[in-house]
Design a binder for these strands. Structure first.
Lengths: 348, 348
DNA sequence: TCGGCCTGTTATAACGATGTATAGCGCGGT
DNA sequence: ACCGCGCTATACATCGTTATAACAGGCCGA
């Protein structure tokens, strides 16, 4: 009680219990060969001194911290909030704690993650890049355990977990085509080649249009900008103002779709009667939007759990894993969730 | 290059540069009295060995970690995603990193935070409790720096940052009354006394009704359950199914309001023509909902920045702060944001 | 010329835990 | 009796850093 902030150490406990330092350590760590009497005496001393192990010292000695870092664009984006939720959950199940960093779409900040001291304060890193991509593949050759989350970087020298972006984009378009839509607009095509989610989803979308013999009108493709609601609203507005009259809109993520639907509602355009809209990510918000928005469910929980599992293997916490294993890629299956923004009232 | 995972230590650098250990430390930490020649030699050795300081060892020696823990219910709730975003941002500005924990409304998990080793792996804790409240005030007497976020616990033995919940609840009701609504329903009244946000907002709401001489119909008060969208939808449905015909609904947070508006839209009830709805928190989603939802903006960024600032003071990073200062309470000002869910088309 | 101050560098002791090696004890088998 | 083994507890080294004290040399003023 005397020292308020500076808590007791094992040494203090040892002295109080009249045993050696190591015996206290043994009690704390559940070492089996302890006489009940000693154990009781030490536990008594521990609780009377309010002792708690110093995790930092333990970490130093053991060479690991039990911490992993999650780097995302920003948590206020619903998808990343939900993803962080799942990652924290999955990490917790394995006894790991998550430390957070945001890069806010800043390329330098993203590169900094790869150059960082990543390995010294944390055991490994989960990274959702946006502007660092294919062209920077070599930058992903780092000397700490790293798993890329969400982006597909071919030939990257590290593990990554992603989803079938091409097939997802194709499914979006096929869904609209299947409902008889032909003048299909696209929102979310990036103007820089690094943003692989955008490129891949677009690749699938274009393929689906071609396969159906439907021409993609360049005037119906709306472009660059971060994938957030206001951008979705603005791009939708620009399309309509330019005189375009699509009957279906494919948005490469849900935030864009939510912005687009908002803009359509604001103008009194009926969804889906006049224009059907489909998003991508299946954030909870799409289900409570009005109308509820059709979307691609990428299996967020599965992605998070798989990424944490891969990272745990790389960190070396799984004896069964061969550390010389080369970079792995895991593509998680998706699912199309059809709601009223494409199906209409019959679907709700 | 020989040792891939096990990185070089200061000792290795010292040997390579032909200087003492402490000199390397001095270079790393920018100690001024160093000959340029020595400094250059050490820096050369550092980069050729790819040396990076071991933050854990530094932390042990210095007795602090540069880490703070943020405990929230769950990140997939938009408000907490946005709050975490702001906290990470504010912490980053002060050189602190945020570590995340979720309690998922589990009372035991919440109490665990207060009993935890909070102080040993992190320098301090920011905590958003839900089910630990007034009755547990003494449990907040912990021996590590702690700032309560969002809840008001009177006489709590630790700092807290909150908003004027009573005045906020009053403002919600006054806004609806001012628009001529009289049959006002309430969604989000907790059935347990611990959830102070609910109690306080309700207190303000009741006061506003009384001041206006409007009776609160008990049949129009919908209750318990976590403050998430599906609960808002269900409570709204229950109200309507019970035959209640309110002309205005006060929701004690935005998730409830979003669920309620969703349910109303689903049933074809016009918002606000038939029923006006107002929420609380001003999450971005309310602005992109259709119709956009009126709400109370609690000043999330301000709250986050203030909480981090208070915590930094408690941790002792500010020399100007007197550590014997008693528990402090900071109430951040709010702002009513009127949108179409109460104003109608004229507001949009 | 001497004591004191500044500069540049070092040896050594912490920080608080865990791993290794080992010592004492009692016990059963030969 | 003696050896060897299992149980209990210990002393000491160690993880990689930073703080402290001290040292040698040069320069200053008295």
């Amino acid at each position: 009680m005397a020292r308020s902030r500076a808590s007791a150490t094992m040494k203090d406990v040892a002295r109080a219990a009249g045993v050696s330092l190591k015996t206290v350590s043994n009690v704390v760590n559940g070492y089996p060969y302890l006489s009940p009497a000693t154990k009781a005496r030490v536990e008594e001393a521990i609780s009377s001194l309010g002792y708690r192990v110093n995790v930092t010292a333990r970490n130093l000695r053991q060479g690991s911290t039990g911490l992993i870092k999650l780097v995302v664009p920003e948590l206020r984006i619903p998808y990343f909030g939900e993803l962080a939720d799942s990652v924290v959950e999955a990490a917790g199940r394995r006894g790991l704690t998550v430390l957070l960093q945001q890069h806010r779409y800043d390329r330098e900040a993203e590169l900094g993650v790869l150059r960082s001291d990543g390995g010294s304060q944390v055991d490994g890193v989960l990274f959702s890049p946006v502007h660092v991509g294919q062209a920077d593949a070599e930058a992903f050759r780092v000397d700490f355990p790293l798993v890329i989350l969400g982006e597909s970087i071919f030939g990257a020298p590290c593990d990554h977990v992603s989803m079938r972006n091409i097939e997802g984009g194709r499914a979006q378009v096929e869904h609209l085509l299947g409902l008889g839509r032909r003048r299909i607009a696209i929102i979310g095509l990036s103007d820089v080649p690094d943003v692989s989610s955008s490129r891949l989803r677009h690749k699938g979308a274009v393929a689906a249009l071609e396969a159906a013999g439907v021409a993609l009108d360049p005037a119906l493709v709306a472009g660059p900008g971060p994938w957030v609601r206001p951008v979705g609203a603005r791009l939708m507005a620009d399309l309509l103002d330019s005189g375009a009259r699509p009957d279906g809109v494919v948005c490469y993520n849900d935030a864009l779709a939510l912005g687009a639907v908002h803009e359509l509602s604001r103008r009194g355009v009926r969804v889906p009667d006049d224009i059907a809209v489909i998003g991508f990510d299946n954030v909870e918000e799409t289900n409570y939007s009005w109308p509820p928005i059709s979307t691609i469910d990428p299996g967020r929980e599965t992605i998070a759990a798989a990424a944490v599992a891969m990272l745990v293997e790389r960190i070396g916490l799984e004896q069964s894993f061969d550390p010389s294993t080369g970079p792995r890629e895991l593509l998680v299956d998706f699912r199309l969730v059809a709601r009223q923004s494409t199906l209409g009232a019959t679907g709700g």
